[in-house]
């Protein structure tokens, strides 16, 4: 019974992994994480505000915004092995979203990575042997490539190989400009870097688009309070303590309780005298011990 479940599970896992690996072998996959929400508390109105404030729209932008609301664009990734020249390595496809106020952002970024050719593989193996850098670059402007200059990023080649070649892109955007691209392994790259060849020469790419967050504002609570009082709103009376509110009830209550206690204390004394008395009578006789105490 147990074995069958185990085997079923194994089968399931196997088929799943097959599915994943087959899809990998077929086409380099990519993961899309879009950090559109710009900080946790931002939300859309904040975003609109952010977009409106920074820069005046440039001529290229205007042209695009006039032509259509959402246009497809693509820009290429190029790579270099050590000191070699850059050559194309993949294409980023994205949708350019134009906001009402003219600002533009990239959305729906898709990445198709070219697989390594045999020459590339050889070059890459050389990098791995020499613990050298694998370098990539992107244009600094997605509309008018390469923009002012390419943005470059590099990583030690030995950080990439795992099962396949795992790579992680963080693309820092500002409108249609790419400020920087951070390239590397998706996880850790332990320090004494071991020479390890990838099992599969295919890429597992993860891409993250990042826009700038808004800084927290300086707190202005003192002004808020001032503003409210000026508007003549009802200022809640200062919270009084429990004692201050209910003392008139508490004192009699306390007296009664005290009374009861003293009575209870006196009870054993009197029990010796009047054993057969009714409990009701005890209540009636309540004041007497108090008088006696005085």
């Amino acid at each position: 019974m147990k074995q069958t479940i185990m085997s079923q599970l194994l089968l399931l896992l196997f088929s799943l992994s097959l599915l994943i690996s087959s899809s990998l072998a077929f086409q380099s996959d990519e993961l899309l994480i879009e950090e559109e929400d710009l900080g946790s508390e931002g939300g859309f109105p904040d975003l609109a505000h952010i977009r409106s404030s920074p820069q005046p729209p440039t001529t290229t932008r205007r042209r695009y915004s006039e032509s259509d609301q959402d246009s497809k664009i693509q820009f290429s990734l190029e790579h270099a092995f050590g000191d070699s020249d850059f050559s194309p390595a993949g294409i980023f496809n994205a949708r350019l979203k134009t906001w009402n106020h003219g600002a533009q952002t990239l959305t729906k970024l898709r990445f198709s990575r070219n697989d390594f050719t045999e020459v590339d593989k050889e070059k890459f193996q050389n990098l791995l042997k020499g613990d050298d850098f694998y370098r990539i670059r992107l244009p600094s402007n997605v509309l008018s490539s390469p923009g002012r200059e390419y943005v470059i990023s590099s990583v030690k080649a030995r950080c990439l190989p795992r099962e396949s070649l795992d790579e992680h892109f963080v693309i820092h955007m500002e409108g249609v400009n790419i400020l920087a691209v951070n390239y590397g392994a998706p996880g850790a790259c332990p320090h004494p870097r071991q020479l390890k060849l990838p099992a599969k020469w295919s890429f597992k790419s993860h891409t993250v688009l990042k826009n700038s967050e808004q800084a927290p504002r300086a707190p202005v609570f003192s002004e808020d309070i001032l503003g409210e009082t000026a508007e003549g709103e009802v200022v809640p009376p200062p919270e009084r303590s429990f004692w201050a509110k209910y003392w008139m009830y508490l004192i009699p209550l306390g007296l009664i309780v005290m009374n009861a206690i003293t009575q209870a204390m006196n009870m054993p004394e009197e029990q010796g005298g009047g054993q057969a008395q009714q409990p009701g009578a005890a209540v009636q006789r309540g004041p007497t011990p108090a008088v006696r105490r005085r």
Binding site: P56, G147, E149, V151
Partner: peptide, 9 residues
């Protein structure tokens, strides 16, 4: 590596 700040902004 390089970081290219957009010159207009």
């Amino acid at each position: 590596w390089s970081i290219v700040f957009p010159s207009e902004s």
